[in-house]
Design a protein around this nucleic acid. Sequence first.
DNA 1: TAGGTGACGGACC
DNA 2: CGGTCCGCCACCT
Length: 112
Amino acid sequence: MVDGSPGFDQRVWAAVALVPAGRLATYGQIAELIGAYGCARQVGWALRRLSLPSEVPWHRIVNARGCISLSLSREGSDWMQRELLISEGIPVDEQGRLPLRRYLWRPPPLAV
DNA sequence: TAGGTGACGGACC
DNA sequence: CGGTCCGCCACCT
């Protein structure tokens, strides 16, 4: 269903684009926002498929644990994400952890 | 075709 | 706090 629906990636990117600067959203939030509750991993892949640089504010998406997902497979995009968030005023420590609850974005009740 | 992997999440310890 | 386990589902050997 997820993969079969036309432009799943496009929906993810559209939802991510709703997140204002200086705010954070989780993969799960984005998934739920596009009607794909429980498919947080697919959201991750959608962002991974994203070619950088991108107009999509992908860096504002973190996991529910409140930290940047550090992975070697990201080829440094994780550290890039850290820099981008700091530049938007969100403090991120060496372990990629950040005050999620403080900057968490409240998604609109009605969306897509 | 089968099995391992992962930019996740939640329950547990 | 942190670490582990399990469910999840598309992707890649």
